[in-house]
Amino acid sequence: MHRTTELHRVTAALCAIAVALAVVFTGHPAPARADGEVFDTGHVDAFYVSAPGGELTLSMKEDITGSGVVRPGNDVTLKVAEEAWSEATEGIDGIGVPTYYLPQTQDSSLLWPGWDTQSAQSAGYTDINFEFVEVTGPGDIFVFETAGFGDIQPVTDAGALDLVSGDVINQAYPAHRHVNWAFSEPGIYTMTVQAESNGDTSNQVTYTWDVGDAEATPREEESDTDHGAESSAELDDVTLGEASSDEPVSSNSGSRSGGGSSGGATRGAASAAGTKAAEQQAQDKNRKDRTERKERKERKPARAADKTTPAAENVDTVAAAGYYDSGQNLLPWGIGILGLGMLVLGLALARLALIKGRD
C-alpha cells in the first residue's frame, strides 16, 4: 500500500512538471474555459486589434458588460435574435433571400457588431488584414456595406457578398467600423480569424454566432410549404375545371342519377394528383436551392493582386450612411471650408483695393 501511494505521488509530480515545462517552452497557458456569456444586444467590436508590448493581438471589445471592456473573444456567444429575421436582403443582388439581418446602423433591439483597429497604430500597424481561416455554419454568411444612395458594396478582397473560409477583409487605415451582417439559416456559425499586418500575424480567435431559434421551423421550409399549398390550389382549380367541363350541368330542382358520384371520384383523384405534383415541385425547388447555397458556400475566393478595398475608396460616401472611423473622413470637409474662407477673404481684399483705387 505504501509503495502504491508513493508511486501515485511521483506520477502526479511528473505530470505537474510536464505541464509547467509546456507553459514555459510554448509561452501559452492552457486555454481558458468559456464562461457562457451571451451577447444579444448592444455594441461589440468583435474584431479588436491592439498591440500590447508591440505584439499584434486580436481580441474583442464590448460596451455591454461595461465601457470598452476587452476580452478574449472566444469566451462569449454572439446571439443573432429571431427578431433579426428580415426580407430586406431578398432584393439584394448576390443574396436574393430573406436572412437574419444585423444592419450597419445601430438597432437597439439587436446586436451591433463591428471591428476596431485604432489601438494597433501605436505600434506601426495601420494597414490590417482580417484573415478568415475557417468559416462554418448551417447556411451562408453575408457581409457588406450600405453606401450613399443605398449602394451595396462588398467588403471582402474577393469582391463577393458571402463570407467563406479563406476570405480576407482589408482595413487599410486605423478605423472603428461597422458593416451589415446577414445569415441565411438558423443555427451555430463559427469564424476562426487572425489579423495580419507588416508581415506579422496575430493569435487566432474563434468567434461563435448563435443565429435565430434552431428549434423553430426553418423559415425557408415555411415559405416553400406555403408556396406549395398555393401551387396545389391552383393546380386543383385547373384540373377540376378540365374534369367538370365534359360533364352535364345538374339542375337546381333535381339531381343527376349516378353523375354526382362519378364526378366526385374524378375530382378527388384530380385533387390528389395535383397535391402530389405540387409537393414534389416544392421538394425539388428546396433541394435545388440548398445545392446552390452549398456550392456558393464552398466557393474559394480568387485573391486580388492588390490590397485595394472598395470601402477604402469610398470612405466619404459610406460615412454619410452610418459608417464611422477615426476621423480621416473629415479631411475633405476641412479642405472645403478652408477654400471657402480663402475665397471670401480674397473677395474682401479685392473690394477694399477697389475702394482705395476710387479714392
Results as ranks from 00 to 15, higher is better:
F39W: 07
S231A: 15
D200T: 07
S257G: 05
E230T: 05
I64P: 00
G327H: 07
L161E: 14
Q280N: 13
E221S: 10
E185K: 15
D200F: 00
E196Q: 14
N74F: 02
L56E: 05
P138T: 11
I92Y: 07
F130S: 05
E221T: 12
E87M: 09
P248K: 01
A305Y: 09
T208L: 10
G336R: 08
I355K: 15
C15N: 03
A22V: 02
I95C: 06
A312E: 02
G187T: 12
G36M: 04
S202K: 07
G346I: 01
A88D: 14
S244G: 03
V315L: 06
A269G: 03
K294N: 11
D157L: 06
E220T: 08
F132N: 11
A320F: 03
V80D: 15
R296D: 13
A32G: 01
A272M: 10
S165I: 11
S122H: 05
S59W: 03
A265Y: 06
D167N: 10
V168C: 01
P248D: 04
V80I: 15
A282I: 04
A305H: 10
D40F: 06
N203F: 02
A175C: 05
D116K: 02
G137T: 12
G73L: 03
V179K: 03
Y100L: 12
L354C: 00
D236L: 04
H8L: 01
I64G: 00
R33T: 08
D284G: 00
D289K: 13
V135M: 10
G53D: 12
M60T: 12
Y101T: 10
A353G: 07
T57A: 05
L21V: 02
L58H: 03
A265D: 05
G68R: 03
M60G: 00
Y207H: 14
A216T: 06
G53P: 05
G259M: 13
G91Q: 13
V10Y: 06
V318W: 09
I128R: 10
V133A: 14
K276R: 14
L330V: 11
P154K: 15
